[in-house]
Structures are given as C-alpha cells and as structure tokens.
Design a binder for these strands. Structure first.
Lengths: 201, 201, 201, 201
DNA sequence: TATGAATGAGCCTTCATTCAT
DNA sequence: AATGAATGAAGGCTCATTCAT
C-alpha cells in the first residue's frame, strides 16, 4: 500500500475521475478537460498517462466491467438453500443495475457507443462472457443440485437472465417509475424457476 | 396549403437521410454536414427545415419509434391458433431487432444518449408504453382465450417480454455470434408460456 | 392618401419596421429576418423592395435624419422674445435626444457604423449640415436682433451647440443617471448666451 | 509564478492586435479570425487567453479607456499660468480625439455598441467618471485659484467640456473637413472661460 | 512526471442573398 | 408583388492533440 510508483497512482486517479465524469455527462459530452479538472490535474498530465482519449475510455470501461463483474460474483454467494440463493442473487443483480452505479451507467453508455467503435467491444464481450459463465456455474450448482434441469439449452440460461435484467434496466432509464423493485425481482424469479423442471430419473 | 409540397418532401428526405447516417455513425459522430451530404442538400437547407440538430434528432427518433411500433403491431396479427400466433409474434419481434434495422440501431443509440438528454425521453417512453400496450392486449387475448392466466402481474408481462428481447439484443451488439436465432426464439417462447398456468375454474 | 401604389406603401412599412428593430437591437444584431417579421412580410419581400441590406439601412437612416431634422426645425419656432425662444429651442433639442427616440438611437448607432461604412456618411453629413444651417439661421435672427454678436466664428455656433448636446447624450447612453434634465438645459443655455456679447455700435 | 511569462505577453499581444483590427474594421465586422491573423496566432490561441469574444472586447475596451484617460491626465499638467494651462489642456484633449487614435475610434465604436450590450457600459462609465473627476480637479485648481468661480454647478463643468469635445468629434467622423483644429480649440476655450465669472469678494 | 501554451480541424448556427413559382 | 426554398460563406466556439519546459 502506498508502494505504488506515483505514475500508477495518478493513472488510477484519472480512471476514477473519468468514470465519475463519464457517468455524469456521458461519453459524447465529456471532454478531457472535464476529466482533468475532476482529477485535479492538467490536460497534459492526462495525456501523459493515456496517449489518447480512446485509450482512457477503454481503461475506464475495463475498470467498470471488472467492478460490476466482481459484484455479480458476490451476488451468487448468498443464501443457503438453492431457492433462497437464487432469489438473493437476482435481487442483487437487479439492485446493482437499479442503483444506477457510475459503473453501470458508463457501461450502458459505452455499450451503445461500441456499435460504432469496435475497440470497445472486446471488454464488453469479455464482461458478458464472464458474467454468463459465473451465473451459469452457480445456476447449475444450485438448481441441478436441487434435482432440476433446464428447459432450454443450459448455456443460454445466464444470457437470458442477464439479458432480461439489462433490458428491464433500459426501460427504467427512460422512465424511472416504469417498474417497481419487488415486482421485478418476483417476476424474474418466477421466470428463472419456470425455466427448470424436475429432472426425470 | 400544398402550394409548396416540396417542403414536406424535403423534410422527409432529411429525416430519412439522418436516420441512415445516425445508424451508420452514431449520434456522437454524426454532423449536420454528414446528413446534408447524404440528403444531397446544403447544410443551410437542413437548418431551414429543422432549426436545430436536437430538433432533427428528435424528429428522427419519433420516426424510428413509429416505424418499429408499427412493425411490432403487425407482429401480433399472424398465426391462427393462440400458440402459433405467439410464436410468430416472438419470432417477428426478435427479427426486427436481430436484423439491426437502421431504426433499431438509432433507437438503441439514442436511448443511451437519453440518459443525459432528457428531451429524448418522452418519445422513448411513449414507444415503450405503446409497444407494451399492444403486446399486453394480444397476449391477453390469445392466451387467456386459451384458458391460461399469467403467473405475474398482467401489466408486467409485455415489459418482461420486450425487456428480454432488448437485453438479448445488446449482447448481440457486442458479440454478433453470441446467440443463435432459433435458440432465442425457442427460449423466449418457453419463457412466455412458462409465465402462464391453466386458469383454475 | 391611400393613393399610393402598394409598392410604395410596403416599402414605407418596411422602413418603419426596420427603424423599430434597429433601435431595439442595433445594426449589428439586426437581421433581415427580424425586420421581415416585424413588418409581417417574408424575407423575400424585403429584398424585393430593397435590393440589399445596406440599401435598406441607408433608407432608414435618411428617414431618421429627416424626422429628427424636422423636429429640430420646429424647435426653433417657439417663444416670443429672443431669450425664451432660445431656451425653448435648447429644451426641445435636448428632449428629442434624452427621450431616446427610435430615430435618435438609430442615428447614434449608424453614426458609429459610418466610421467603417462610407456609404452612410452622406446622409449624416447632410443631416448635420442641415441642422447646423437651421440653428445658425435662428440663432442669428434671434440674438443678433437682440443686439448681440457672437464671440466665435458665426458658422461655428450651431456646430458647437449640436455637438455639445450630442456629446452629453453619449454620457447618458452610458450612464442614464449621469445628467439631470434641468441641469443640462440650464448649462447649455448659459453656454449659448455666454457665446454672445453686446454688439458695439 | 512567472514560470510562463509567455502567457502574459501573448495576452497583451492579442489585446493590442484586437485594438488595431477593431479600430480598422469596427466591432461588427471584426472576427476572431482577423484578430488571430493580426496577432500571428491561431484562433484557438485567442480562445485560450480569452474564453469569449465578448471577454476579449471588454479587455480591449478597458485598455483603450485606460490609455485615453492617462493621456487626458497628462493634458492637465502643462502650462504655467492658469489660462495657458487650460488652453494647453483643451488643445491636447482635442488632439487626442482629432488624431483618431485607434483607442478613440474603438471607444466610439463600442460606446454605440454599448446601447445593446450592457456589459460594456461599466468600463465606459468608469472612463467618463474618471475623466470628469480629473478635469474637475484641475479646472477648479487652475481657475478658482485665479479668482474665478463657475456659472454652472461645478460638477457639471467637466461633463460639459468632455461632452462638447466628444460631440464635435462625431461631426468630424462624419465629415473630416467640418471643423478646423484652431477653430475648435479657440471656441472651446472661449466657452470654458465664459463659464466662469469673477468671484465676488 | 506534469504544466501551460498553442494548434488546427471540425461543429453548430446565423444570415444575406438568389430563385422558381 | 410576394413567398417559400435553398445556398454558401462566415462566425464563434470546443476539443483532442502536440510540445517546450
């Protein structure tokens, strides 16, 4: 701790500041100047650490994906019995979205941007793959262990779950009152369980 | 009235051109110059018909939402028996997304932008409301008529369906090969049916 | 009356409207569009009557100079004895300025502009010459008739008087409370009379 | 501090260049591009030092007012006896105007502009106040010391003097041959002295 | 490692002017 | 006599980037 060279500390500071500004103003309206001000440095300093704006944005995206992925991972380690674990996970997965963390907002913003900037896609693809893999693992562990088996191809399960949550989030973006927290959790849980049926012996 | 029909034709031409350019380059990278070139007019002419870039973008968004909503409406009017109608609708709803129409891409782009530009939200909120209302009506008509009743609050049904499809689309944006068409349709259909249970008499 | 062809009436309407807008917004910030709107016509119509913006502005300037000159003329036809006539004239000459008529404001604005647009100078020079000639005539008639003779070259008298009033007006432009009406009139009157001495027989 | 003295030098260079261009072309026809070219810099550099065109113009105006005020101040420190001091001052005050320095032209131009741009007024009001205060002080010192007292309110004296000079200048703007230098000086001197009378003991 | 200065391309917008109708 | 449509040249401003220090 504190052992990092100044360079690394500054770079990290810039990424954090950029994340905040990007969440607040969006990629299109964020200038390097804004980021430099937020970080308390000069524009030149930002360029010293990140050769290009795109490079910085990429770093921010990776950081944001990491953070969300980590929180997703934790989401699955709660609850005792399979069902309550699933419920807790869904609740946490929705919460991390509904809270509209800086990270979540930046990811949503850059995901749209990635349609026209291919360099952003790898991070996002990794993120989806990783999140899906995690969810897949836990879904299988919990539910199959409970004597259930999926009604759809197993590798599709997590993608459906995450897609559903992300899609609902978009509706909240547009109209914050469109969905109630409990309703979403209950409905997603219903869907999740409905995707399994008793395994025939 | 009608003395100068050229105006309406030009305005429509500008909106179409703008839609194309926005789909290709995204809101952030699209300039009025690009749009003017695409429309074969001068920048001044664009400003003559739309006082501001924002105004034009809003017009494009409304047009795109209309178009997609209309296609969504048609999606529900196919098939004979309830189940095949549902299947046809889901297939069409996914196709309109997976095809990545200009309209769909622009909507996705502007939806992200709407996080930081409140003036875009009304059109999008209308769009979601309208699409949800349509889906709600047909879902109830088809499935309830088939002696089923929803396992979740009825008004949530279409939001879940559309959210799921939109969320899956985002994964395709990032990684075009992440999902196969048939898989998606089958899975969404499974989910949709799983959301109903026989109505107890 | 009413016998003018439409063309002339429209042209006059445009000049009046332009005067109002120019007084309100200043030459630099006035567009032909503003003037057309004020006149309730289209931009094209304005161009029909005045081939160029400069031509219109020149017409407005002439009109304004005429109006002010006419009022100046009237200013000298009041009062009975020489001194009260002089007092009345000065009071009116200051009032027409201090009121900040549209005409006065436009003249002030265009006078500054004339430094860089020589085509405006003739009208203004005419105006000054004409106003000076009027004032000269009356000053001489009134005061010389009263047995006085000027202390400075006679042809300079009106230029001094008008210059003084105009210069004081500029101070009011910058700070409306800089000068009180009565003070100005009294002081200018004092100066005017001090410029004469009893004619030695 | 002083690590980057180039900044101050550049800012000053820009102000000087802007003064020249404004004097030559007038506020309305002067673009930042013109100023940048005159300064031998890029448009961006101008914006680096002055965030806005208005800000730059304000800086130029203050600079011009300062310069003229300083020269006015010097005008009063010449001559030995009261009368020759007054004469010298009037001569210099007229000269600084009749020379049509860049500063004087810019002040006249912006004064007209200030009718529609309130942000310019404070500088001009200060300038008039300051010049009036200076003139007031010297007028009183010289003339009252010579046993004279004003015929009009004392605080009006300098405003009358400066107003007269400024007003005459406007006539010269419009018609350079309207007034001869010696005539003006003699007449203004006559007026100035006529404004005083022997103090009764 | 970081800063202030400067660049230059591009963007949105305004506006006088032209022209077919 | 007048209108709506369209043009094209600026204009002010933003911003990523470069560079000497």
């Amino acid at each position: 701790m504190g052992r990092y060279p100044k360079s690394e500390r500054s770079a990290a500071l810039i990424v954090q500041s950029a994340l905040r500004v990007l969440a607040r103003k969006g990629h299109a309206r964020t200038s390097l100047h804004d980021i430099a001000v937020e970080a308390g440095m000069s524009k030149g300093a930002v360029h010293y650490h990140f050769p290009t704006k795109d490079a910085l944005v990429r770093a921010v995206l990776e950081h944001a994906c990491d953070t969300v992925a980590r929180r997703t991972l934790e989401a699955w380690s709660r609850g005792n019995d399979p069902l309550s674990a699933l419920r807790a996970a869904i609740e946490e997965l929705w919460r991390v979205r509904a809270e509209r963390t800086d990270e979540v907002r930046v990811i949503a913003d850059l995901l749209a941007h990635s349609q026209h900037d291919a360099t952003l896609r790898p991070s996002l693809a990794d993120y989806y793959r990783y999140a899906a893999a995690q969810s897949h693992e836990h879904l299988m562990k919990h539910l199959v262990a409970a004597g259930l088996r999926p009604r759809v191809p197993a590798e599709l399960l997590p993608r459906l779950l995450l897609g559903l949550l992300d899609g609902l989030l978009m509706q909240v973006f547009v109209d914050p009152d469109a969905l109630r927290h409990e309703d979403v959790v209950a409905a997603v849980l219903a869907i999740a369980t409905a995707l399994f049926e008793p395994a025939t012996p």
